[in-house]
Every structure is written in structure tokens, then in C-alpha cells.
Design a protein around this nucleic acid. Structure first.
Lengths: 97, 97
DNA sequence: AAAATATTTCACTTTATAATTAAGTAGTTA
DNA sequence: TAACTACTTAATTATAAAGTGAAATATTTT
């Protein structure tokens, strides 16, 4: 962080991305997707919440541009859009330790 | 992310740290502190909000363990506790690009 | 075509965060 | 010691985010 003045717009965007990751369920979803694409079904099984709630969190993750969706017939598959998101996740893991 | 099962406790802790960074003002504060210790006075000048509001956000950053405080007479100085926080910040910057 | 499955959307309630203003504390200066 | 500066706390209000359950949509199976 050598330059102290950061454009306001960037701060807004960056804090939004981070915010999207900051909910425990969403953080967990991103961790899970880190291993590769996953179906809605399996995500719901892996995280402990209702289908409806999971769907809403995934919609938020899509809106914030962190995950991509692929529909195959009646099934929906989610995946991480940008691998750098996983590096950010790994980094956050590192901060705690 | 090779191991898919993350301890629940860690997820909670990590998402809390990220959440602390996810508010635009707090994100900005962390950026500013990235350049080194800063007085409350100067922080308030740099971010566009009231003294009281800044104080509350800084209290939150303290509680979440991201910043440390040092009092000298009636002045208060804040600084980043762990340099890895700044790496996390830099990483988030990188995700956007 | 009815029933079943997979998922999302909607309306609603609850809970959590944020901003504001006023009051409070603690040092500092006149 | 009174007024001033630096900062925090508390109370209030406003706003936003999260969870729930029912209804809606779309596909698949029987």
C-alpha cells in the first residue's frame, strides 16, 4: 500500500466483493466451489441451510460477480468465476493463523 | 483449496475478519493505515465522516483484531496489527483488476 | 396429463448495521 | 478552575441483510 489515495469507486467495488464473501454460508460456499463446479443439490447438502436460503445466497454471489452458473436441464451448477477469488480466500485463511 | 472440509469455527472467524473489512469506510481506513500509524484526527480528516462515526468504526476494527491503538495524552493513534491484513487488502485489489 | 423433482421468487418477520445527535470522560490550556 | 480539545459512549432512528415458508416455474418421470 504505497499510494494512500484510492479512487472512491474502487473502494466501493472492493468492499462489495469482500462483503459478498463475508457471510459464513457464502464463505463456505466459495470454499466448496474452490474444489470445482458443484450442483445446487450438493451445495445444499454440504452447507446446513434451506434450499431457498442457499438459492438466495448464490444469487447474491452471482450478482457480485464471484460465481458463474450453468444450467443443465433442471439442474444448476455453480462455479468460481475468477481463480483469484480463491487466492483471496487462501490469503484470508493465512491471516488467521 | 485442496481440502474441502473446513472447521466451522474457522469459517466463523475468517468471515468475521472479512466482514470487518467489508464496509467502505473501514476498507478505506485500513488502506490509510497501510502507510503507517495515523492519529484519529488525521483519519477523520481523510475519510469523509463524523468523528463519532469514525470512532465507532475504529472500535469495531479493534474488536475484530485488525487494528491496534496507542494513546498519547489526549491523542489516539491507530495502526494495523498484522501486516498480513495488508496483503489481504492488496490481494482484494488484485481481484478486481 | 398428473405427480415428482429441482430450483427460484415472493412476501413477510426478525435481526443486524449504520448514521446521527447529544451527552460524557479525560486530558490541556488560559 | 473554566473553557477547550480530543475522543468515546449511549440512545435513537434509519436502513439493510438474513431467514422462513408458501407459491411459482420449469423439467422430468410415471
Amino acid at each position: 500500500m504505497s499510494k494512500p489515495i484510492i479512487p472512491e469507486r474502487e473502494i466501493t467495488q472492493l468492499s462489495e466483493i469482500i462483503k459478498a464473501m463475508s457471510h459464513p454460508l457464502r464463505y463456505k460456499i466459495i470454499c466448496l466451489l474452490g474444489c470445482g463446479e458443484m450442483s445446487m443439490q450438493n451445495l445444499v447438502k454440504a452447507i446446513d441451510t434451506s434450499h431457498s436460503n442457499a438459492s438466495q445466497h448464490l444469487a447474491l454471489l452471482q450478482d457480485s460477480g464471484l460465481v458463474l452458473v450453468r444450467k443443465v436441464a433442471s439442474r444448476v451448477y455453480y462455479r468460481i468465476r475468477d481463480q483469484r477469488t480463491l487466492r483471496l480466500l487462501a490469503m484470508s485463511n493465512h491471516v488467521l493463523a
